[in-house]
């Protein structure tokens, strides 16, 4: 079902997001009060929570411009070396901006 991102539709989307997120905040505690969450379920959830971000990023890296690709590369490199998200994100943005200004033909 598609929802319009205007007027009431927007409100429905946000409420749906809020309810789903709340369900994740409460769900773990709620389920545990009946039965301990099993090992395989934990593994699935753990692997899925990283995978969903990768799944979002992959098309962005493949279909984006070279500025976007360089930005992602920079963020990954800084994150691996410094392990701090803020410089990593700032570095990625800066590289995208610089690259698009200096080499607009290649971007």
């Amino acid at each position: 079902m598609n929802i319009e991102t205007a007027g009431l539709g927007t409100l429905i989307i946000i409420l749906a997001m809020a309810v789903v997120t709340l369900a994740t905040r409460w769900g773990g505690v709620f389920v545990m009060s009946f039965v301990p969450i099993g090992y395989r379920v934990r593994q699935f959830i753990h692997a899925m929570s990283g995978s969903v971000l990768v799944a979002l990023l992959a098309p962005l890296a493949v279909s984006g411009d070279n500025g976007a690709r360089l930005a992602l590369l920079t963020t990954a490199a800084i994150m691996l070396t410094l392990k701090k998200p803020l410089p990593a994100i700032a570095g990625g943005i800066l590289v995208a901006a610089l690259f698009r200004h200096l080499w607009p033909m290649l971007a």
């Binding site: 905040r25 389920v31 929570s49 969903v52």
Partner: peptide, 11 residues
Amino acid sequence: AINARHLLMGA
């Protein structure tokens, strides 16, 4: 899927 990690936190 993104917020599923909250389930583990609660657990």
